[in-house]
Design a binder for these strands. Structure first.
Lengths: 236, 236
DNA sequence: CGCGATTTGTACGTATGTATG
DNA sequence: ACATACATACGTACAAATCGC
């Protein structure tokens, strides 16, 4: 497969992140990009579309394409990003400890909660994310055992996504997220330094493979004062 | 301007919303759409891209394009949507009351909070959203007076966006959002039925016109138990 | 003021690659 | 092996907004 537009996208994105193109500046015109990369204008525009979707650039008819204000932390959360990736691009230094790794059967109740098919086995994982010595995030994962076969506690301590995409060569497709604020559970109280808070911010992730099959459900439970979620939207 | 891809997008979207194409079903192929609408494949693909971005459909190489599970509430929040639009598509019956409408000067402190330029005048509006007789959302808006000239309390009771886009013919471009959980302020306590909660879920909106100029800052302050934010993401 | 040059937006057409059945 | 369907890439043309002369 070719996918030159992805190379172009990453190239331009890197230039923006590194500050070669700065917020407020005008990018080279589409036709200049065509010359620079030896591609067609359609390919250039496809790369620019991706950047616009992420909120890094904005095109003005007749004027040009401009770099928007951005904070690196912000736009890393635009798509589906593993915790490791997000931590790296944000620059924050988290440490992770796996406090539970077990196999469970998905019964009706669990299926209703996770959207995973009942009757199947799943890995159930608790991971605590510590920042500045405080336990501020509890990640609760369920991965279908069929799909994520061979997951281990050791892998969970590193990056599960690297394993799934790298080793198993699975293709992750899309995810639906719901954010809620919920009462802290006994698990939250046991695993987090809640400092008296009795609510947690919860990001529920329903993740599907590229072929559409659901394979992961994750709840990210945040101490409310350390929670932040960013988002970019365009009006049509 | 032509924008046939937008017509196509809305047509197909309506068909999905109305249930003519149901979740799990396969859509007509791209070439069929070409015949149906008498357009080129590029135009069809552009319409499908928009639907895929919203999480309504998913394409499988060699197989076809399929409708995803969706709840109408969910995808209405994908882009920039006025409260009125969101309420309508969600089917929930909110009532709005304007409890404050005044003009303020943007000083340094307010500029830091809103990202609006210091030294300018702005409309400051409090609107309380009531659901099932309970005051659950407090919207705090700041609109640049320069831009949104002529705003009134009466307009705020209806739809500010209809006024801005309809009457003033302004084009809204994009918005950055940040979601936080914050301690309830005295304003929250005064305007909401907090039922003992001492935290609120806050969605901060930094809205820009199409030409990039910031013109609106809005804080949507939700009672935590009635807060929900949905999101769709794809892995690249 | 108009005119032309530049730049992005839209639409169409064609060709080829790749996955599926 | 073949037809179908989506994915990528190139090319062309014209529309519409902007800017400088």
């Amino acid at each position: 497969m070719n996918r030159r537009y992805l190379d172009l996208y990453e190239d331009i994105k890197n230039s923006i992140v590194e500050g070669n193109y700065r917020p407020g500046e005008k990018l080279p015109s589409e036709n200049e990009f065509c010359r620079m990369y030896g591609t067609s204008r359609g390919t250039v525009r496809k790369a620019l579309d991706l950047l616009a979707e992420e909120g890094l650039i904005h095109s003005l008819h007749g004027k040009g394409v401009f770099v928007l204000e951005h904070n690196l932390i912000t736009f890393s959360f635009g798509g589906i990003v593993s915790f490791k990736e997000a931590a790296e691009t944000s620059g924050l230094k988290f440490t992770t400890s796996v406090s539970k790794f077990e196999e469970v059967m998905i019964d009706e109740a669990l299926s209703a909660r996770t959207n995973l098919p009942p009757g199947k086995a799943a890995y159930k994982i608790f991971r605590v994310r510590k920042l500045d010595g405080e336990r501020v995030i509890l990640d609760i994962n369920f991965f279908l055992k069929d799909v994520a076969a061979g997951l281990s506690k050791e892998i969970a301590e590193q990056s599960i996504y690297e394993y799934i995409e790298g080793e198993l060569q699975l293709k992750i497709g899309f995810a639906k997220r719901i954010i809620h604020v919920e009462p802290a559970t006994s698990a939250d109280k046991a695993h987090l330094d809640l400092k008296g808070y009795n609510l947690v911010a919860v990001v529920k992730n329903f993740v599907h493979l590229h072929d559409g099959t659901p394979f992961e459900y994750t709840e990210s439970r945040h101490r409310p004062d350390r929670f932040e979620f960013t988002n970019f939207a365009r009006r049509r």
